[in-house]
Design a protein around this nucleic acid. Sequence first.
DNA 1: AGCACGCCGACT
DNA 2: GTCGGCGTGCTC
Length: 739
Amino acid sequence: MDTDSSDLFGPLLDKPVAAVVPVLVPLPVPGPYSYAVPEGLTVVPGSVVQVPVGPRQMIGVVWDGADDSTLDPKKLRPITLAFDCPPLSKEMRDFVDWVSAYTLSPPGFVARMAIRAPAALDPEPMVEGLRFVGGEPARLTPARTRVLDLAKEQEAPWTRSGLAHAAGVSLSVVDGLIKQGVFDTIFLPPPPVVARPDPDYTAPRIEGPQKGAAEEIVASVSAGGFAASLIDGVTGSGKTEVYFEAIAQALRQDKQVLILLPEIALTSSFLDRFEQRFGAKPAEWHSDLSPRIREKVWRGVVTGEVRVVAGARSALFLPFEDLGLIVIDEEHDPAYKQEDRVFYNARDMAVVRARIGDFPIVLVSATPSVESQVNGLSGRYTTVHLPTRFGDAALPDLHLVDMRRHPPERGGFLSPILLRGMKKALERGEQSLLFLNRRGYAPLTLCRVCGHRFQCPQCSSWLVEHRFRNQIQCHQCGYHEHTPEACPECGTFDHLVACGPGVERIAEEVEKHFPEARTIVMSSDLLGGVKRLRMELDAIAKGDVDIVIGTQLVAKGHNFPLMTLVGIVDADLGLSNGDPRAAERTFQLLSQVTGRAGRTGLKSHGLIQTFQPQHPVMQAIVSGDAGAFYEREIAEREKAILPPFGRLASLIVSADTRADAETHARGLRAAAPRVTGISVLGPAEAPLALVRGRHRFRLLVHGRRNSDMQAFLKAMMSAGPKVRGTVQIQLDIDPQSFL
DNA sequence: AGCACGCCGACT
DNA sequence: GTCGGCGTGCTC
């Protein structure tokens, strides 16, 4: 780019003195800012730089395109410095632009997700190493002899502390030898974070239907180019082994691989399985990595030293040097949705990344999302079915318990049938799992005298009693107080009554029936954090517990060999919470929970307590045939999204209180009169994700086509002064729009 | 996003 | 009379 100064100096300076480049900065602005490139600094699109913004310095990325700023080029501030790291590739930049446009989020925010390891932007310093030069020190002591023996034994360079430690001597002994010239110091590249996985470390453990499936997927990896496959296999059918073969193939072709997992599934057992197959662990990427490891992994990914990353959704934005395959395990899992700052579903954005990078992607689930199912049926994804369990594991025998015909005793929630099943399991020394997706003791407390209901003062949803902690809590905003002894309305003592069950209340009922059994409640309330959780899970796996009562925390990842009975306490819970995905989510959750049983060959059962035994979800669960269920869900989704408002979107408006939501909805109706599908939900009815956190209101937007959605949202936002403020939008779109 | 500036209620 | 609440505007 030319400037005035080059004309001024004419032949004296035939190279441009300065240039102006667009730089994406992490601000909520619609495009890049312009900066001057100081003399002597070379930047290209993708370069990671530091720039002044107001009084502060920020990390930004030099972006594509001519600078279209109307500002006076002489007044532009200069780039402070350029980091010594590879620039973001064109593919990565295209991906950032695409995600920004699709999610209606500022491009600088999206770009920031790719460079979220600031200290890693400059190369790691070389580490000091010791090289054995030879010769002997003037005086040979026993300690010095030990060091020398070791050094002669192993040629490879040592570190100072490593050598001292291995020889069992103090650092001063080694330092003495360095002084004597027996060792000299050299600089070595830092050791890699993880070893290189070997695609042929062990032979694949696949047989029967797995074999054909693996061949199909491996073929699409060999062929290269974009292709999306959906592996649809029941729990325990060997899905992991099948996609491991796709990974092996990508590694043989010298490509990097990304495995996305829902946060919670990033367990040591997955990493161990990977190591058994490939001889090395994958690099991990998730929110609670230490900064040190985080930098090393980021650097390794950028330079290509790290070949495989297993990570949570944020790993999708890692700037791989040469990514050649993405695997998305538990494809249906809602944890792939990010619902702050940039709203995105990592599963959908991963498909886009594969498309832009022109490489294959594999989606994996026992209970695919309706969107993926549609894409499979329409042929956009190649579906691979794995209908049977691997080896000797049999699927549990599932039965519905009609609660109208088999009511629990007064004040209880467990049917006689379920209690009988638990008793038998206990007698055989086997374990039972009772699943209820509700924390605490009771979801609602009321006063029997005046009818007062305990409501959150901040957000108007019911306060949930937690008896273990002697608190009543709001599950929406985190408000809590001591459980009161008297009604705050009428002052009456001892007439507060708990309504409905939570896991704590179920535990009470279990203890009444089986006082001798070893019982544990597993929920996110469990004190002691992740460490305690892991300990308890190990204890359960070892058989130290007879009865587990758990929320969805127990649905994932862990195998309990002695678990032969799964009881769903209230299968209908969650079917009527206002979420258009309620049925789908319930089906997925119940499949996952019942799948916990019978994974080691013991005969196992599932008892599903329901008031709606004819409901399609219940029928799909017990029959094991989800076909009809999906067909109905797809039809319902079409109905919900399309008519009666044609191609315009439908909106769900929610806020901290129902009254607030209604006020905002009025504003939205005025601004967008053509949208007839505005539904208003209070915090108690809305999907949890929709109302969590402090905000004025939040929209859940459903639409058929992304372009329509964008046009609609922009029109709506600019239409009326009544819809200004912190509008948070969750796009919820059929992914066919980007394929 | 952060940060400064600016205008109305309960307080040393 | 002030301290401080958060509404509004700006950053190349």
